[in-house]
Structure formats: C-alpha cells, structure tokens
Design a binder for these strands. Sequence first.
RNA 1: GGGCGUUUAGCUCAGCUGGGAGAGCGCUACCCUUACAAGGUAGAUGUCGGCGGUUCGAUCCCGUCAACGCCCACCA
Length: 859
Amino acid sequence: FKPAPAKNGKGTYTILMPPPNVTGKLHMGHALDHTVQDVLVRFKRMQGFETLWVPGQDHAGIATQAKVEEKIFKEEGKTKHDLGREEFLKRVWAWKEEHGDHIIEQIKKLGDSCDWDYFTFTMDEIPHKAVNKFFVDMYNEGLIYQDNYIINWDPKLQSAISDAEVDHEEVQGNFYHIHYKVKDSNALLEVATTRPETLFGDTAVAVNPNDDRFEHLIGKKAIVPICNREVTIVADTHVDMEKGTGCLKVTPGHDFNDYEIGKRHELEIMNILNKDGTLNDNAEAVKGLTAKEARKKTVELLEELGQLVKVEAHTHQVGHSQRSGEIVEPMVSKQWFLNTKEMADTSVKEVENGNMTFFPKGWENTYFSYQKNPRPWCISRQLWWGHQIPVYECAECGHQWASEETPHVCPTCDSTAFKQDSDVLDTWFSSGLFPLNTLGWPDEEAMKEKGFDKFYPTSTLVTGFDIIFFWVARMMMMCNKATGKSPFDHVYIHAIVRDKDGVKMSKSLGNVIDPLDIISKYGCDALRFTLAVSSGYNRNINLDPEKVEGYRNFVNKVWNAFRFIYPYLENANDKGFEVDDLHHHERWILAELNDVTKKVTESFEEYRFDDGCNAIYAFVYDKFCSWFIELSKGILNSENQNLKAQRANVFKHCFKEIMKLLHPVTPFISEEIWGYLKTEDEDLLISQEYPVYKEELNFSEDVYNMERFIEITSSIRNLRSQANIKPKEEIEVRFFTDDEELAKYFFKSRGYFKELARVKSGKIKDKSIERPTKSIMRATPHTEIFVPLEGVIDIHEYIEKLNNDLKKAEKEFEKVEKKLKNPKFIENAPDEVVEEVKGKAQGFEEKMKSIQNSLEGLS
RNA sequence: GGGCGUUUAGCUCAGCUGGGAGAGCGCUACCCUUACAAGGUAGAUGUCGGCGGUUCGAUCCCGUCAACGCCCACCA
C-alpha cells in the first residue's frame, strides 16, 4: 500500500481520505466513499503511478466532547466544570485511546489500500503546528480578528456555531400583530412578529422610507409594550412594504437583519438572553423563562394590555443546530472571525480557470453559490476539546498577541501573568489544513520525510456533496492561502446512499443497512462491485440488498469459471501465443478483451465507475463465459495437444487480464485467483501493470463473424424452443444465404453449431433453392434458418409469430424507406449515414421477403 | 423568495458532440446439459412527463407547462 517509484513515465497520484470522526461508526456512505477511492488508487497504482492514499481521523470537537461529557455525567454524576479543563481533557484523550480505533478497524474490512504510516489524527503534533502557524499568520495579517458580532448561538452546547452548521427547518408558528404606541401621538403602529418575546430587546421600530402610511412618524418615538421603553422610529429600505404590516420591530441583539439595520442607524444592542437561552434581567417581566415560555407569557401580558391585535398561523423557516438539534439563537457575542473574502475569491477563480475541476461538473454551481458572498467565518467555539486558540493576553499590560509556541513571557512587558484565550477552534479549521498537515506541513523535516513536494497538490478528492462547503471550499481557501496552490486537481462528488425506496437511511426510521452485515452475508467484493457499478455522475444510490446479491452471484460466476478452467491450465506452456497461429475464436476473444480494456480504462479515468464495471461484467459474463468457454470445450477435451496447449495459453492470458481489470473493484477474489495463475517471478496482483489497449489485437473481421455466429446460434435455439425440441435431441438445420463469405464461415463453424445448438447436420444453400416443407423458419437480414418440424407445434401460434416478426420488419423498413424517399435527407445527411440507411433498408427488405415466402408456403 | 436538479421497460438507472430505444434486477416458458440452479436457454414489456419550435431527421438542441426532489436565503 506504500507508494512505489513511478513506472512507464507516470507521475504521482495522491488521494486524501476524508477523515472519519473518532466518534464515528462505519456506514454505507463510508463504504461508497472508500470503495471509489480504493478503486482509483488500485487502478492508478497498477497503471504505474507513484500512488499514495492518506488515511486520517478527525477529532470532531463537538461530537466527541458531548459524548465524553455524557459518559462522565452518567457514570460519576459530574459535569466537566466539576473536573476542570485539564482533567476533562485527560478523560477525552483516554476515551479516544480506548474507542478511537473502532471505526479504523471497521474501515480495514473494506479492503482499503491506504498507507497507514501516513495516518494523521487532526490533534497530532503536526496538525497542531499547522493550525497554529496558519492562525498566527492570519492574525498577523489582520484576517483573523476578534469582534462583537451577531452569531448563531447553540443554547444546548453553549457555544457559537458557524453559519454552515445551521439547518433551516420549516416550523409551524404564529404571526403576532402587536400595537406599539407612538409618543406624543394617538397613532398606533401595528407590528408583526413571529417572536414577540424579543420585544424586550427592541431598540427601534423600522418602516420603509417610501411608505407614505408611516412617513409622518419617522423620527418620532415608539413605546415598546410591557417594558415601556422609548425607541426611535427609523426609515430603512430593508423593510418590505408588502410583508407583514410594513412595520418592523428592530431587535439588533437577536436577529441578523435587525443587527444590520442597527448598524446602519447606530442603534443600541441589547442582549436579553443568558447563555442557556433563557431570558435575562433585561427582560424583567419574563426573566428566567425559556424562549418558548417567555413567548407565551409575553403574549398573555400583551393581551392584558390590549395591545395584541391578532394572531395568525404562519409557517416559517427556523434555524436549528446541526449538532444538537436545538433552535439556534442569534446573539451578539465576542468571537474570533476569519475574513474569507479574498480566499473565497481565489478558490472560485481556481475552479473557473480550470486549475481544479469538479466531476460531475454540475457541482461547481453549488460550490460557487457558497462562496460568492462570504460572510466572516466564526471560528471560535466555547468548547474544551479542540485546538485552543493561540492568542495570549497579558494581565499586566493588556497586550494581546498570537504565538505558534507557548510563550514564556509577555513580549512587551516581560510579565508572566498572561493567559491563553480559552476558546478552541472550529473543527473545520484543522480539517481545512488536512492536505497540508498530512504531508508534514509546516514542519520542514516532516515535509521532506513525507514527500510534500512530490505529493502536494494531491490528485483527486472523493467526497459527498454535503461537505462541499464545510470541507472542500475550506481546504481550497486555506491551502491556497498557505501555499498558493489548490490542494487537488479533481474533486469527484459521489452519490448519497439511500435505502431501496430512495429514503435517506436513519436510525429512527430503522432503514439503515450496515456495510458489515452486507459484507458478512455477501462478501466485500460483492458490496464493492455493487457500489462501484452504481457510481457515475448520479446523485442518489438506492441500495437494495438484492442488488448486492446479484453482484455476489457475478463474483461467484467468476470463481466458477476459474474453477472450470483451472484443470486445463496444466496444458499451458507459458510461451504465450503467436498472433499468426491464433484460432479465429481466440482472435475474437482477444479483440473483445482489448475493447473492454479500453472502455474500462477510459471510464475509470473520468470517474464513470458504472460504465467501467458494466463493461467488465458484460464481457466476463456474456462474451467470456457464455461463448468463449462454451466454444472451447471441444478443443479442451480433444486429443490435439497443440490446440489444447494454445487454447490453455489463451485462457490463461485472458484470465490473468480479467483479474487485472477486476482487481481495483474486487481485490479479494482477483488476488486469490491470481495466486493460482501467476508465474514464480510474478509478484502480487496489486502490483501488476494494468492492461493496455493494443491496436494490433483489434481483429474486427473475427468480431464481425462472431456476431453472425451468435445471431444464428441463438436463432436455432429459439426455433428449438418454439418446437419444444428436447435439449439433448440433435436436429437437422438448413441455412439459406446469398452471402458467400458468410456461407463459408458457417461451413467452417459447423462443428460449433453442433456443440452449441445440437445441430446434427446442416446444409448451406443460396436463396434460389427451394425451401423445405414441414419446417419452421426464422429470418435474419442475411440468412434464413429452417428446422424440420419434429415435435408438435401449434401451427396458428407459429403463423402468428411469423406475422409478428413480419410486422416488426415492415415497421423498421418503412421507417428507413421514408427517409430514403425524402430528397432532403439524401441531400443533407452525410453520405455515410445515407449508405448505412440504404444497407439497413436492404436487410429489412430481405427479411420481409423471407418471412412472406414462408407464410405463403403455409397457407 | 432565489437557484439547481430529476422525469426513459414493473423497479433502479445508463444513453457521449442529434441518424435504427439499452443494462441490471424482476417477470414468463422450458431445462439438474459433463464450471456454475447463487445456474442455463429462450421470451415479453417503452405515446423516452405534456405541448410547441429548430432540423432532412429530436430521448438528445431551444421555448413553455406540469409533477417530484434538493440546496441556498435574515425566524417581520
């Protein structure tokens, strides 16, 4: 799994594994994500690239801290504050040591061929250094700053969270219409709000400056009900005259819009909430209540005062914390921010100018939409588990500075009485540097050792669309800022795995499919093949275990095919084969193998795993097993040692190539079978060279003939089935064709018709000869096939069948004939298309004639 | 409110720059045929969401309508 020097003039190929959380448990999403990556890595490795797949793990600030807090409270009845920061962190590390490996062990069951020596935990020393370096650089550039700003507050976690961590969900609420009195006037302002309890934090009422209903009141004072505070009536264009009552209460401390209005009008910001989301002293009348309780109480008080005009039902979007599920409270608070304006610009440009490409391309839009209007990223979290913010403040002189290393004294006054900021950084701040820190950045020695210059920028990032902003965009921004280069060339966004009905899997719905269960039931290769064959440029994969079963059967088919061939391989002499000596069936299968090689390679290179896997499946199942093996049985069981040896050589060659083609997708079975096929000086399959398309193996004439052979054989079988002829019974068949070349080929293939369709004897004549009676027939565009009527068949049914065939042929004929009669078609269509259509018309006509003749003979 | 996507066989989906509609699963019939019944052989099934346009020709390009889904947005 370690990078080996590149071969065949190839370069390096690097993938970073999206690091699973320490608290994580393996799910289908991982299985898909890792299957795709492992397919790519094994494919590129075999192609000769110096290939590195870097695994890692994320410390997952909030999730981990919450888990450990819960455990301690359950077992000891203590909170983290009872233990203190230092002791609590010790406990988290202990938990991590004990349980952190769980998901890693699960991942290994998927067959990931990543280099575990590169394993990086986001709280390791190097990532810590990276975080500190990046932070300090940004701090010194002024891009990281501390500010009082309105942020999303999670009252349950009691921490700020970023905009991206807020999900808006539809909630059934009410529109409360409230009367605000106007000072020195009898006028009443009707204000509509969904959150009456925030009126305690109102510091203005706003109307649109162009709204003549309220024009005369602008600049006057309104009186906030219950607390009777006087606030100014301001004019602001943000107010929508059509919406609500056209009159807006302004709560700059607890609403993002109002905050902006407040800034424009220099309004006072009033905080009415405690950290746990309850109302504080500033809302005397509802103090200590939760927001929900306070809302009820406020409405009651308003009713008593006669200032509640009406209540209307209203559905609206309310922000919920992705982490805790709690309703998020906008709150003004002192936090650390990263100004991402320029970084976002750069990361957008990098995609626009093609330095980084999305597959499928459509995801660009999503990526852009997140970054066109970036707001400052709130990076501080009021948690303990994570990278503590490397900013220090001196108690003596008040100096604040950022430092990569823990300082000994204050740089301005030499005092030792300084304190580090107690907040930690958003987990994504360290994940955003993952492409750098996994390769040793910023430690020069580590960078050298890990080959930073060789492996950075990485090649492909494989992930789901849900973290395009969280992770992809942040890596683009931060890594570009740090190095001037985008962290990857390609981003492949794969689908989301859903249940068979297209419903997202969730614990509560009980529709979760556990990859480990699937593996133990059907095998890892079957799961991998299913996921790969389901992955292209699609957005959803509806995973039905029956589908996995189907591909398990395919893996089994491969095994059985090998089991059949294996004993014959002792005839092989490992000399390979001379192209000139090849039997036409051998040329055919080699040409087909050559084709599928090309198709698979091209498909994998553009992340069309569906196309690639389908191509292998069809080749192995239909071409190789159904036809080549069947066609070979005669030779394999014959006494002709030369032919047997050559066929064994071809078999061995094909099977080895098939194992190589399959290896990226089904590494287990292919490596196992390879063990029986390889020569002594050949190494493991994983390090073999991937098959390459060769022009000289493109035997198109043999492919053309074989297609005819298959067509005729199937037709004979069809007739047999129609006449209820016993499978073992041998029959006489007569062919009529005017194509001399074809006739020769059929004659040459007579032995194979016998083996595959139980044809006892067959005469090949041209169409001028009288057709046999007491027979049933089938027509192709070039050949008529007659089988004597042996069993009992329903003559009416047979006539109906012929009529059906005739109708089909007529329909097809009419279609092409219509084209040919259209002078504009002849004039405008390319010559080759016209020729093609002419050929088809002729073929259909022949077929029609054949069937008509036969029908006439029957009547 | 803004944006994006999807609509093709019973189900899940593929159809690249326009030129005779495909796969897997499922279904039907017959078969323990000497690798494979987790199999074999044969077979049935589509107004390519509706309407209009461009074109010699449209599943594919343009317009429009409809249904479904997703994302973003400051909770009046």
